[in-house]
């Protein structure tokens, strides 16, 4: 009989539980898509801030991937550097650091993100903060002077780093409230001071389009995050386009959402699978919550002009709760029958 089993050895068949066919989606593929989507934003950062700023990206990526490898080796866990999640963390971290960040600051960021925020809690999928964002916030608190120093964009100037640091659009608004330091167009293209990957909204939107087209993320978080912020700032200032009643164009809804790290956070940070809700309504609540917290920090705390990181981190913390509350109804699940309250009260 020819049909015994491969190699004629009986009982050597592959046996595993069903299903026996799988889709082509892989963790590595998803992470690679995120890397591709981040490329335009980082490329714009390097273009506007000069070649020297590329070393921020390299330092972040190398430190993140190396930390992951070394930690997994030392902890005797399976080395999963190949899933590219540490690469994504490195790139996201670079996006959130100033182009002037010294290499040791980047390395501190990489180690903090991977070891302190991700691996200590069990590795991929177990962290409750977005690693890159958590690390960035720790750096922000620990080395505020390095973190807030930005530099003027020098499009096309491929020289060394200009040591003169200048304030970001959001920090500027308090110094000169009467007129906007940057036009909406410049804010959109990214020709403004800021962090490596946050300045060009155009590049970030290209990344968003790619992520949506590849079905890596859904629209819920970015749209509800940016939308909530836009509406709240527009209501406060009375205008979407210009300063309106508040008298300052920097307070308008559009200026606010195009400034700072809002787009970067809404598209790449708040949508992190591990630390954001799973179900559609939960995602909308997450995005709206981020928008609200960001608005409160930016609008009511003059000492701290940028609130995106804290907004997302705070919503990361309530993600498990959101997942519980916004559980979708099972197929065929009936609405819970009204409890006979009165009968109980009288008893």
């Amino acid at each position: 009989m020819q049909s015994i089993s491969p190699g004629g050895v009986p009982g050597n068949w592959n046996a595993s539980p069903s299903p026996h066919i799988r889709s082509g989606a892989t963790t590595r593929g998803l992470m690679r898509d995120v890397c591709v989507a981040l490329t335009p934003a980082l490329a714009c950062g390097v273009y506007f801030f000069g070649w020297q700023s590329l070393r921020v990206v390299i330092a972040c990526v190398v430190s993140s991937v190396a930390s992951e490898y070394v930690y997994q080796k030392l902890a005797k866990r399976a080395v999963r550097v190949n899933d590219l999640s540490a690469l994504v963390t490195g790139l996201l971290l670079a996006c959130g650091l100033p182009p002037t960040a010294p290499w040791w600051l980047c390395a501190m960021g990489g180690v903090t993100a991977i070891v302190l925020i991700k691996q200590i809690f069990g590795g991929l999928g177990q962290n409750f903060f977005n690693p890159a964002l958590g690390a960035r916030t720790i750096l922000m608190i620990s080395w505020a002077t390095f973190m807030t120093a930005s530099m003027a964009a020098q499009p096309g100037v491929m020289t060394g780093v200009d040591t003169v640091s200048i304030a970001t659009p959001l920090a500027m608004k308090y110094a000169d409230a009467a007129q906007a330091p940057f036009s909406i167009g410049r804010l959109f293209l990214g020709d403004v001071p800021g962090m490596m990957g946050e300045t060009s909204k155009l590049a970030l939107l290209i990344g968003l389009a790619y992520l949506l087209a590849r079905r890596v993320i859904t629209w819920h978080i970015p749209v509800s995050f940016i939308g909530t912020a836009l509406i709240l700032f527009a209501i406060k200032s009375g205008s979407i386009i210009d300063g309106g009643a508040a008298g300052s164009p920097t307070q308008s809804g559009l200026y606010q959402i195009l400034s700072g790290g809002l787009f970067l956070g809404a598209i790449f940070m708040a949508t992190d699978y591990v630390t954001s809700p799973i179900h559609p309504w939960g995602k909308i609540v997450m995005g709206a919550g981020c928008g609200l917290i960001l608005f409160v920090i930016r609008a009511y705390n003059p000492a701290y002009p940028e609130g995106c990181s804290f907004a997302i981190l705070l919503m990361n913390l309530v993600t498990p709760l959101i997942n519980r509350v916004f559980r979708p109804k099972m197929f065929g699940e009936q609405p819970a029958p009204a409890k006979p309250k009165e009968a109980k009260a009288s008893a």
């Binding site: 049909s3 015994i4 089993s5 009986p10 009982g11 068949w13 592959n14 046996a15 595993s16 539980p17 069903s18 299903p19 026996h20 066919i21």
Partner: peptide
């Protein structure tokens, strides 16, 4: 079927 069927250890 490949989605719900059972893998056999022998034929």
């Amino acid at each position: 079927g490949p989605m719900m069927g059972v893998a056999l250890s022998r034929l």
